[in-house]
Amino acid sequence: MLEDWTLLGAIALYALAAVMALAEARRGRALPVPAVIGLALVVHAVSIALRWQRLGHGPYVDMFEVLSSNVWSLHAVTLAGVLLIPRLRGLLAAVLPVLQILVVWLLTVEAQDTLFPVTYDTLWLPVHVLLGKVFLGVTVVAVGGSVVILLRRWAGTGFAALPSTKLLDEINFRLVLLAFVFECLMLAAGAVWAQDAWGRYWNWDPLETWAFLTWLAVAGYLHLRVTRKPPPEVSALAILAIFVVAFGTFFGMPFVSVAPHKGMI
């Protein structure tokens, strides 16, 4: 089936881009990594679109769909980041290998046909999902910066093409601030959806509670960073912690909670 082959092709291209990014960082010679990511995104988009057309709904329902669409969006946001700020291109060597964990996970999840819960049939769901993907994508770019800061500090790895640790720390702070904007908007869109779908805008179900914990973690980091100006390594660790909480919220809670987010029938 074309849908499967295009997905496999995209996965191969993502892996190739990650290897090329590592080679680029090691040799210091530019390779066409953004072009390969771009090609992978196009091929992957075809796979997602074919599935969307066949099932009649977007990739929001089960783990396979959520993973697949997030692999796409996280690569897309990362690519957009390095295209908008070319000096961050070296971050690809830190971010892409991390994203391959998701890619491998995607390979292990069975692609079953899914039924679209009636409570998902609203414009607010794609808005909520899109904002969430941008939030996580921007956070992932900051995670790349954090990995570089920590590798420089503890492994002595240079990443000479990237800005100084001090500037990377500043960029990370701004990235998390930007991610926070999208997280606030995501929560607001989710509340509108919840009011429509279940007659209440917020009910402290496990996923909502975890989402609010993630919001608190980001807000806490931003306040800490503004007032105490911790060393870049501490900031980097805080960003990694935020990512862990956000990752659990995105990829853990929706699939263990029996709350309405799972698609009450």
Binding site: I85, P86, L167, E170, I171, R174, L177, L178
Partner: peptide
Amino acid sequence: KIRAVAGDAD
């Protein structure tokens, strides 16, 4: 904030 730092990064 981002405008302020984007110039430095570029």
